[in-house]
């Protein structure tokens, strides 16, 4: 897959190819092949982690006290999912890394989240657009993963699917209210969806890693989730009296570590303590 973001330099591309096999560039971290399952678990965990991290930024600043509590609940669910997936990833890798090691000691190129979740919060409409698109996808993904042949993944999915159904419903409620609210809210909701539309395709892309796991019954074919997603999004946008955004050229790259500029800043903030005091336990 060609890198789609112009900020990536040729040297980085070479690194990213290595990253695909090795996962980390930190000095002292072993760079070795660790299998498709490890990579897949990072994708699942990083999606939840990065979106959860974004949602913590809202805490104390939401449009109403009740919304503050709702967003924190979603954030807590996502951080919980991230812990489960990343701990399992560490276990699968078998090199002694746990969820925290993976969350706080990988650099941009080793993160496997999709580009959508790393986008900034923007205003409330933009946050809701991101949540709506992501949770709608994640719901159908987790529904299918409850049947994964890897029982550990099936168990995490079974727990998380209930959380995510609520996220998807809450976000849909807000898309409808903002879309069919005031002129200003409608404009903001249109802008919010517009911002994220470039990143929708990536959520449904599959590659050799996922295809091999799908054949083994561990993962699910993301392409198969697309039809249901389009139907749900279509229904909610119709209720919200919103037009479907124009389809721009899709941006991809997150799954191989080619992220946008935002992720580096997010990680710099998130990882600052464990990076500054590498010997400390918190």
């Amino acid at each position: 897959m060609a890198p789609s973001l112009p900020t990536i330099q040729p040297g980085d591309v070479a690194n990213a190819e290595k990253a695909r096999a090795g996962g980390s560039f930190d000095a002292g971290e072993a760079v070795e092949h660790h299998g498709a399952l490890f990579d897949y678990l990072l994708r699942l965990g990083d999606d939840s982690l990065i979106l959860g991290q974004r949602l913590t930024e809202w805490c104390g600043h939401a449009p109403a006290l009740e919304i503050d509590l709702s967003l924190a609940n979603i954030g807590l669910d996502l951080i919980g999912q991230a812990s489960l997936f990343l701990n399992l990833a560490g276990e699968v890798e078998g090199k002694g890394r746990d969820g925290d090691r993976l969350a706080f000691h990988r650099d941009v190129l080793a993160f496997r989240n999709c580009l959508l979740v790393e986008q900034p919060n923007g205003d409330f409409a933009q946050t809701i657009a991101r949540q709506f698109l992501f949770s709608t996808m994640q719901l159908s993904l987790f529904e299918r993963l409850t049947g994964s042949s890897d029982h550990r993944i099936a168990e995490i999915a079974a727990k998380a699917v209930k959380e995510v159904r609520y996220h998807a419903e809450l976000a849909s409620d807000w898309v409808v209210r903002l879309g069919d609210g005031t002129e200003e809210s409608r404009r903001r909701m249109v802008d919010g969806l517009d911002w994220f539309w470039r990143f929708v395709d990536e959520m449904f892309q599959s590659d050799e890693i996922e295809q091999s796991l799908t054949r083994a019954g561990i993962a699910v074919d993301r392409a198969e989730l697309r039809q249901g997603f389009d139907a749900t999004v279509g229904n909610v946008l119709r209720d919200a009296t919103l037009p479907l955004p124009e389809y721009p050229r899709a941006l991809t790259g997150g799954r191989i570590g080619h992220h946008g500029e935002h992720l580096g800043h997010l990680l710099a903030t998130m990882q600052y303590l464990p990076r500054t005091y590498p010997d400390a336990v918190w």
């Binding site: 503050d68 509590l69 812990s83 600052y272």
Partner: peptide, 26 residues
């Protein structure tokens, strides 16, 4: 410090705690 909590456990605990403060205000 929510965005900078040094572990996933600390991040979840702190978010739950700060959320509680919001609930108490409510």
């Amino acid at each position: 410090w929510l965005t900078r909590a040094p572990s996933l456990r600390r991040k979840a605990i702190l978010l739950a705690k700060v959320q509680d403060e919001g609930g108490h205000g409510l």
